[in-house]
Write a protein that binds this DNA or RNA. Structure first.
Lengths: 179, 179
DNA sequence: CACGCGTATGTACACCCGTACGCATCGTTG
DNA sequence: CAACGATGCGTACGGGTGTACATACGCGTG
């Protein structure tokens, strides 16, 4: 009964959805779990997002924007004097030592995109945009694509195998690619 | 009532589970869907696999063995005379032009492992074993790790963005890594 | 042949889910 | 101020799920 008047409730629902996915994964997303997390009644989530897909897409799209903004900030902060391999290696290291939840969220986006037609464009946009941003910084799209692929693969390997992070290996691999 | 006597029913259930995951994804796995696919009553799946996790793990473990066997076969068939980048590029190409279902299955394993404690060792074993196999072929574990990461990243990028496969880019990137 | 134990079967329970819908409430517009 | 459209709310329905369990069957051992 409280909060009868609640502008941008829609936004709060999206935020709650992101939190739920971050915590329990996409499998844990439901109208009810989101409603509970956002502290709104069930009917509210179904009103703002008629279908669950709609809600999922909205949540992932927003989380995607945040993720890309962070990446863009990193690209902007690249020191043109330093060797690029060094900079990228630091990005990977920062990513790996950072919040595991955030990483899980991003790669879960990929997973959902594999099977889920509606989500695929979001994942594609995320990848393409990262490639574009890095590409216009280093001047070569093809190399940018390779670098993004390599870093994704490395982070994934680390997340799954739990092997310790080896900065030198990253540096060496990148140095080869960036040759 | 038919098939009251049915040895290696357990195996058939596992096969059915793999088929279900391949078709509908891990999200589509349930005791009932597997029972239907294997043409056995529901009680049978719960008898052989008390919990759904148990069934999932058995299925992924088996599919993993198949996948690793294929990889080992490829490693064995590497032509020592040809440049390695060329061989790897062909593997990536074969993977990409091959069955999409198989790829989805493998990456779904990765991403399930992100959230699912019980599945993580399987994904880790898969990655570690590929690195080991390739490493003992090219003599350098660290490089092998990088190559596996790069190919995984590239395949994932292709699956998600649907961008056309560019063999030259793969070759170029690998040539860099492989020095 | 008889018996016992592993296997097979069907059903039942309690839960969670997506979605629909009728009604209450509020801000805004005429 | 009146009325209307947008938003909020609670509940209900039909369906799918994991799991438990009581019962029937049949092969291998004695």
């Amino acid at each position: 009964m409280a909060r009868r008047y609640d502008p941008n409730r829609r936004q709060r629902i999206i935020d709650a959805a992101i939190a739920v996915v971050g915590e329990r994964g996409i499998a844990g997303l439901s109208h009810r779990s989101v409603a509970a997390a956002a502290d709104v009644p069930l009917g509210s989530t179904t009103y703002h997002f008629a279908t669950l897909d709609e809600l999922l897409v909205a949540a992932l799209r927003q989380s995607n924007v945040v993720c890309l903004a962070g990446f863009a900030r990193w690209v902007d902060g690249i020191d043109p004097a330093a060797p690029l391999a060094e900079e990228v290696a630091r990005l990977v290291e920062d990513t790996l030592t950072g919040d595991r939840r955030r990483m899980e969220l991003e790669y879960e986006l990929y997973l959902a995109a594999l099977r889920h037609e509606a989500v695929r464009p979001i994942a594609a946009e995320c990848l393409d945009e990262m490639v574009r941003l890095l590409g216009q910084r280093i001047g070569d799209l093809r190399t940018a694509r390779t670098v993004v692929a390599l870093t994704d693969g490395l982070v994934l390997q680390h997340l799954l195998t739990g092997q310790p992070f080896d900065p030198d290996a990253v540096r060496a691999g990148l140095a080869g690619v960036l040759g």
